[in-house]
């Protein structure tokens, strides 16, 4: 009997804890920069602001409950899931988020999401397409957008390239090629999609294991891969770099 009563007294505090934990989680993601892995920078302020609102709600609700002498359980109407289950779920996920560090997507996700099919297409319509930008200043996504507009690889032959990205080994490429790739984000990690360009090596790609971050300097060549003429990169210099804090392209 006492247990039942103390259980039901505990219930409203679940909400307080859940909202508080979510507020803390938003702050943690913001201050550690992990928010960069999850959402587009345009929306980060919203996550941060909602952290404040959640903490405020948690404090106010705690204050409200502590003034209430008796908890009235009035959940008799239709709900899809039980209220206390719902609060526990929220609390549980927030705690998991506080404990686990989200990892950026890696090459297996790139393969799963089809880095191969995106060779000549991007989902984005070019938002800020600058055709006069210097070739060596183009990022991967800018190269892709440029190619979307004018796909003939010969037109770019000999242009300088300087890119950062991670290594993906795709099965359609010969052993002396790998794909230098990056993910593009428009809203949140649910919509990231990979873009990549093939890099031609003089040796086997096994020297560059998947997921390794590299800075590539080189020039553009045209290669026929899988029966398709396409743009590839002939590197002059391959420098290993640490994984950037913000791994996405925009």
């Amino acid at each position: 009997m006492t247990t039942i009563r103390s259980m039901s007294q505990l219930k409203p505090w679940l909400d307080v804890m859940a909202m508080g934990a979510w507020g803390l989680l938003m702050f943690k993601l913001w201050f550690t920069g992990q928010l960069y892995l999850l959402i587009h920078p345009n929306y980060m302020w919203m996550a941060f602001a909602s952290g404040f609102v959640l903490i405020a709600l948690s404090i106010l609700e705690g204050w409200r409950i502590s003034r209430q002498r008796r908890y009235v359980d009035a959940e008799q109407h239709f709900t899809l899931i039980m209220p206390s289950l719902s609060s526990s779920l929220l609390l549980f996920v927030a705690i998991a988020g506080l404990l686990i560090t989200p990892r950026p997507f890696a090459s297996d996700t790139a393969l799963h999401r089809g880095v191969m099919d995106s060779l000549s297409m991007t989902r984005n319509k070019p938002e800020s397409f600058r055709s006069n930008s210097k070739p060596e200043e183009r990022s991967l996504i800018e190269w892709k957008r440029t190619l979307d507009v004018y796909p003939e690889p010969d037109a770019y032959t000999g242009q300088k390239v300087k890119l950062q990205g991670f290594v993906v080994h795709t099965s359609n490429l010969p052993d002396n090629f790998f794909m230098i790739s990056r993910f593009v984000i428009t809203c949140c990690a649910a919509d990231v999609y990979p873009v990549g360009l093939p890099v031609k090596l003089t040796q086997s790609r096994s020297a560059y294991p998947p997921d390794k971050w590299l800075e590539i300097e080189g020039k553009v060549i045209t290669e026929t891969i899988d029966g398709n003429r396409q743009l590839a990169i002939q590197p002059d210099k391959l420098t290993p770099i640490p994984e950037p804090k913000n791994p996405y392209d925009y």
Binding site: W22, M26, L29, L35, L37, L38, I39, Y43, M46, A47, A49, S50, L54, V93, A96, G97, I100, P102, R103, P104, F105, A106, D108, T109, C187, C188, A189, A190
Partner: peptide, 17 residues
């Protein structure tokens, strides 16, 4: 781990709204 990243990102993007 990519599943967790994806899951968390959906929530973090949706909760403000």
């Amino acid at each position: 781990s990519s599943a967790f990243t994806l899951f968390l990102s959906l929530l973090v993007e949706a909760i403000p709204f």
